[in-house]
Simulated assay, not measured.
Amino acid sequence: MKIPKPIQRGSSWRITVTFENKRYTATRDTAKECEHWASLKLLELKTGRSELIQGIKPAYPFRQLCEKYFQEHGRHMRSARTILIKIKNLDRIAPNIADKSIYDFKPTDIALWRNNRKKVVKVATLRNEHAIYSAIFTYAMKELFLIESNVWHTVAMPGKEKSRNQRITPEQQNKLLEALGWNGLITPVDPKQYVAWAFLFALETAMRQGEILAMRREDLRDGFVHLPMTKNGESRNVPLSKEAKRLISILPLNNELVPISKHICCMAWIRAKKKANLAQINFHDSRHEAITRMVKVRKLPVEVLAKITGHKTIGILINTYYNPDAQDLVEMFNDSES
């Protein structure tokens, strides 16, 4: 059956397919997305109609469900990029279930996937992939009404690994800046230098990489930056230190403060830490370092610190992100006696 041509309506596109005198319509951001939806819809209708009449469930490959989930739901989420990567790489991540019908999934299939996957990735990655694929089955159950239960819920995942406590020393900081080709004083002019700027800004504010990349000049206030949307779905105000204000002052007067994408930022960071021989340092470790410095230098109480960092659970803030070394504890203990 020939795929109809999408029709542009304002900034979006609309497509309609007809099957057995019934019309099915969808609206998407691009013509290509419309055509993709139409091809999946027609396949779904043509392969399933006669068998459904007989009470037989047609094969519904997991891959097809993943694509439908992303188009209908996942692409609108803040984690859309991660979800898309896990779906596009199904053949590598989950070869034993990629083309298996969702009606034929058994706990043993998922347990086999889990056991094979944990041999090649960290537990955190495995748990993240399990959560995404499980959410896709929940979508099939609660939104599409294709299945009655989520088989992913029946398979136990490994417990969380010990939280990272990686700190960033001044020497490591300087090596990373050198690898990124920036001295911290001049206006950034290329992507690598903007990554270096974001790194220093993170050390001053404890902001996440994504929050820094999303900043706009209109978000700057008198002494703080307003984040209209953060990872936990809420807004947040982050106070700016003198150094953070200085870093902002050397940027060009554009509305987009850091004009690079997350992908470019990640790739530049990976190359820089390899060049600096600091493979163990993640960009997110800057958040650990910044929070620990805030406690040590500014003596901020935990309830104030949580407001700055956006942590709703104090336990996570204290046990995961606050990473004092033994000397830090000794100094704070002695300061309390003076």
Rank of each mutant, 00 (worst) to 15 (best):
E129D: 15
T18W: 10
A279K: 14
S101F: 03
A179F: 00
K273I: 15
L329E: 13
T320D: 13
W37A: 01
V258E: 06
L213E: 10
T125V: 10
R92H: 10
K262R: 12
T320I: 09
F333D: 06
E204W: 08
P95M: 12
L52N: 08
V17M: 07
E331C: 00
A196E: 09
E218T: 15
K175H: 08
E234V: 13
A279G: 03
I97E: 05
R114C: 03
E303Y: 15
H76V: 01
P191H: 04
P107W: 05
K57L: 13
L247R: 05
K57G: 02
Y69Q: 08
R246E: 07
S134G: 08
Y103W: 14
N174E: 15
R75G: 01
N232A: 08
F224S: 11
K46C: 01
A38N: 04
L240C: 05
T30H: 07
F19E: 07
L220Q: 09
G210V: 10
L90F: 01
R75V: 11
P170K: 09
R28E: 11
G233K: 07
D335Y: 10
V151Y: 02
N128T: 06
H226T: 01
T187D: 04
A156N: 15
N323D: 04
H288K: 10
F70R: 07
P158C: 03
E243M: 13
T18C: 13
D335I: 11
A124T: 13
N128K: 12
K160V: 03
Q8C: 01
L227V: 12
L45V: 06
A279R: 13
S286Y: 02
K86G: 00
E67L: 14
G184A: 03
M77Q: 15
E178L: 14
H130K: 11
E20T: 01
L305G: 01
P95D: 12
K262N: 15
K2M: 06
D285A: 06
W152M: 15
V151H: 01
P158W: 09
Y103I: 05
A140R: 04
I308K: 07
T292P: 04
D29N: 13
R221I: 11
E143G: 01
A306R: 12
E337L: 14
I83E: 12
N96Y: 05
L126R: 11
K22H: 06
E171G: 02
S101P: 03
